[in-house]
Each structure stands twice: as structure tokens, then as C-alpha cells.
């Protein structure tokens, strides 16, 4: 390749972990730097939106977009970067499926704002003052981005060429993706740049029949490090979560949280997880089944921890206004 790759990184509704994950490629980052120029990376360097706006259409080769879309600024930049980039990569679970921020879809925006601006214990000045999207002051009009009713995935606004899931995507996968892009031999558009297998495939634990007599939370037990966690009654999302992480959580004796999202063809990650987890607790005694499954705390938060914005329902209905 004669010319260097022109890259952009952006963070929307995210924690910054995805950007740190780029740094986690360690010295390999320098190799990337050799073959690529970075045109935009707000978390690392001072770029201006106007510089991006000034670029020609498709000027950038690849944009790595992390974070969900929660406000009008994030949407605007998503559209801008889409226009300027040949390839748009949803980078990390939030951009792919909404991620942790999308759990906010289980609440009304009003509930969230009243908690943040007056309800929470750490709120200072509980007089109910809230930020506005525009306000006139003597010097002119001040604006803030609009807060949307819900958290969205990147794909809800722009066409996404590839998905690189993970919270955050592990360095090997990032480097693999870069190699793929550099090679010029591209997978079909819309592909997920991770294996179409589940975490169980990479999990070294001994697996047997799954019959769970009682569910327990990770802090309540010290699990046997060699046996399947689910068989020990710990809700593990491995059976329905895409591989690619190297099963690193389960190897640290923690259950899979599902950050890689579902495998291809699965319509609703959380629903599929709920199906398998509930079935392991089947009992011919209805009360016993109810009791066992009652031990699963916060199923929506457990099974849709990363995927709510990309799920069938995508959240809770807003409160009726009539």
C-alpha cells in the first residue's frame, strides 16, 4: 500500500474503555502508526469538528466509532464521520448494541433526569435546576446537545460496515481487524469481526448436563475453577455469547457477562440467554421451578447488560401520557 491508512476514532456514549483498549495494543500501536495516520481522536488529541467537516467525502479510510448514541451531538458526529469515511466500524459493545448505557432504556428520560439533577445522594443543590438545550444570555444563544428519549446503537443512524464487539474489544481482535482492513481482502459488509461461535467454545471448563438446583451470584460462592460455572448455579452468558474474547472472564473465575453480543442470526440476545438459563432450572414441581428462577436477580440487567438497544423491545415503554 503506497499511501498510509487514514484513520479516525470517536467516542460517543461510552466510558473511554474502548480508547484505552486501543492503547492496550502496546507496542503494536507503533506499528499501526507506521502504516496509518490518525486524523481524529478526541480522547487523545485536540481535533476540531470543523477540520473533519472540511474533509472530502470518503477521505478517511476507516472510522472506529465507539459508544452508543444518546444525544444529538453524537448523532451529528456519527453522520459526519460516516460521510467522510470509506469504512465505518462500530467499535465496542456500546456502538454495536448499546452497551451498558442502553440499560437506561429501562427508565423514562424524566426518571433519569430527576434522579441525576435532584434525586441522587451526590447531587449538589437539589433545587431542580436542569440544563436546557438553548438559552439566551446577553452575549448570545448558548446551546447544549439534545438528550434523546433512548439510547441507540450506531447502526440506528448510519450504515455500519463492520462490527467489532467487546467491552472493550480485546487487543488481539483490534489488531486482527486492522490486519484484515490493511490486507484489502474484506469480509462481507455487515460482518462481525469475531468468530461465529460462542464463549463456551473457548471456555476450558469441564461441561456436563446442565441442571441447576439453585442460582447463586458470583460473590456468594467461590466456584470450582474447573467446572462449568452455569452448572454451579452461576448465571453465565457464555452459551449464547459470541466468542472472540478468549473466554477471559470465565478463566478469571467470573461468569461471562455477554459483552460480545449474540452469534449471527440470533434476533434477541437476552431472550436467547433467558431461554437457556431458565431451562436449566426446569422442575416438574411448578413451585420449585418458580423458586429457582426467582433466585435470578435482575434478569433484564443480566441478559440485556450489553444488548438492550439492539434487542426486540429495546427498552421499556415510556409512561402513558393520556
Amino acid at each position: 500500500m503506497s499511501e498510509k491508512l487514514k484513520l479516525a476514532f470517536y467516542w460517543a456514549a461510552s466510558c473511554g474503555g474502548c480508547d484505552v483498549a486501543v492503547l492496550d495494543t502496546d507496542e503494536k500501536l507503533l506499528e499501526i502508526a507506521k502504516i496509518a495516520d490518525i486524523y481524529f481522536w478526541p480522547v487523545a488529541m485536540d481535533f476540531k469538528y470543523k477540520d473533519i467537516k472540511a474533509l472530502d467525502k470518503d477521505f478517511l479510510d476507516v472510522c472506529f466509532f465507539n459508544g452508543a448514541v444518546r444525544n444529538s451531538e453524537q448523532e451529528e458526529i456519527a453522520r459526519l464521520l460516516r460521510e467522510k469515511s470509506k469504512l465505518m466500524i462500530a467499535f465496542g459493545s456500546c456502538a454495536c448494541f448499546g452497551g451498558i448505557p442502553a440499560l437506561a432504556n429501562l427508565y423514562d428520560p424524566e426518571e433519569i433526569l430527576s434522579w441525576v439533577y435532584s434525586g441522587s445522594f451526590s447531587t449538589v443543590g437539589k433545587n431542580g435546576t436542569r440544563p436546557l438545550t438553548r438559552v439566551s444570555v446577553p452575549e448570545g444563544e448558548l446551546t447544549l446537545p439534545e438528550f434523546y428519549t433512548a439510547v441507540y446503537t450506531l447502526k440506528d443512524f448510519v450504515e455500519v460496515d463492520y462490527f467489532l464487539p467487546g467491552c472493550p474489544p480485546p487487543p488481539e481482535l483490534i489488531l486482527g481487524a486492522v490486519e484484515t482492513l490493511v490486507s484489502g481482502v474484506l469480509p462481507p459488509r455487515g460482518s462481525v469481526l469475531a468468530p461465529d461461535k460462542t464463549v463456551c467454545d473457548q471456555c476450558p471448563r469441564e461441561k456436563q448436563d446442565k441442571k441447576v438446583a439453585a442460582f447463586r451470584r458470583p460473590h456468594e460462592v467461590i466456584p470450582d475453577p474447573d467446572r462449568c460455572l452455569l452448572e454451579q448455579g452461576i448465571v453465565c452468558c457464555g452459551p449464547g455469547t459470541r466468542a472472540g474474547c478468549g473466554a477471559r472472564c470465565v478463566q478469571a473465575n467470573m461468569p461471562c457477562r455477554g459483552c460480545f453480543g449474540p452469534t449471527d442470526g440470533v434476533v434477541d440476545h437476552g431472550a436467547k440467554l433467558a431461554a437457556v438459563i431458565a431451562t436449566t432450572a426446569t422442575s416438574k414441581d411448578e413451585n420449585e421451578a418458580a423458586e429457582r428462577i426467582g433466585q435470578i436477580v435482575d434478569p433484564a440487567g443480566t441478559f440485556y447488560r450489553f444488548g438492550l438497544a439492539a434487542s426486540l423491545l429495546r427498552g421499556k415503554s415510556l409512561k402513558e401520557e393520556n
Binding site: 461461535k197 460462542t198 464463549v199 452455569l230 457464555g238 452459551p239 452469534t263 449471527d264 436449566t280
Partner: peptide, 9 residues
């Protein structure tokens, strides 16, 4: 088979 992760559920 290409997708099965072998969870045995």
C-alpha cells in the same frame, strides 16, 4: 456445527 459452542445445554 459451525456455530455450536458445545455448551451441552
Amino acid at each position: 456445527e459451525a456455530r455450536c459452542g458445545g455448551c451441552k445445554a
